[in-house]
Amino acid sequence: MGRIVISENVTLDGVVEDPTGEEGFSRGGWFLRMSDKDRAAWAEMELAEARATEALLLGRRSDEWFAARWLSRGGAWADRLNSLPKYVVSATVQEPEWSSATGFRGKVLPGDVVEEVSALKEELDGDIVVYASIRLAHALLEHDLVDELRLTVFPVVLGAGRRLFDRTSTSRPLRLVTTRTVGDGLAFLTYRPDEDSI
């Protein structure tokens, strides 16, 4: 059975909006403020995560964003990401933009998010990782479909912007599984649902 893993870069106050400053958010670009040492450590961690991933689950906009940036890249990390199967939640597209180098074009999940993702978890084994895709992440969290949260916390407070946990209708108890420093300034936190507190 597959596990849904949300892997996000977040600010200290939980903002996920416009990390690279390309979306026009006045406080965007916070991701780019890290040091070279932090960037190298972060990239190493991301490569390790990609190697342990079975498939990617994305929203339509994130699929388009990643396709425009990663399909032309080379190297171990890009090769791994480009080769992974992609599943895109969307009612408006027929095929994912970010194709797989292994010949698996990807699959669009056009129906009800809860039903589609539940079926995908039954179909696949291993980690199904969600990058970016904030609206999708909100829906998955809301319907208790997330098996693990991996948060790389950047040492900046923005005070405004879309947050990962903006839209939960009830409290969701989580259990801290791991914590570590990445480079000199980033914190990596892993959480899982705390079944004993529900």
Rank of each mutant, 00 (worst) to 15 (best):
S7G: 12
L12P: 13
D13K: 13
G14E: 11
D18V: 05
D18F: 05
P19S: 04
G21R: 07
G21K: 06
E22L: 14
E23I: 04
E23R: 08
G24Q: 11
F25Y: 15
F25E: 09
S26Q: 12
G28D: 02
G29V: 06
L32H: 04
L32V: 03
R33S: 15
M34H: 05
M34L: 14
M34G: 00
D36P: 11
D38M: 00
R39W: 00
A40D: 02
E44A: 13
M45R: 11
L47F: 08
A50C: 04
A50G: 06
R51T: 01
T53G: 08
E54Y: 07
A55V: 12
A55D: 06
S62K: 05
D63E: 09
W65I: 12
W70S: 08
G74F: 04
G75H: 10
N82G: 05
L84T: 04
P85M: 04
K86R: 14
K86T: 01
V89K: 01
V89H: 02
S90R: 02
T92G: 01
T92V: 01
E95D: 11
E95L: 06
P96V: 02
P96L: 09
W98V: 04
S99F: 03
S100L: 06
G103P: 02
F104I: 08
F104V: 12
R105D: 10
G106Y: 01
P110V: 09
D112T: 03
D112F: 07
V114Y: 02
V114C: 11
I128L: 13
A132I: 04
S133I: 09
S133W: 02
L136H: 10
H138W: 15
L140P: 13
L141G: 10
E142P: 03
L149M: 11
F154G: 06
V156N: 01
V156Y: 02
V157S: 04
V157L: 14
A160E: 15
R162C: 00
D166M: 07
L174R: 05
L176H: 08
V177K: 14
R180S: 12
V182Q: 01
L186R: 02
T190N: 09
T190R: 15
Y191S: 03
R192T: 15
P193N: 08
S197P: 00
S197D: 04
I198L: 13
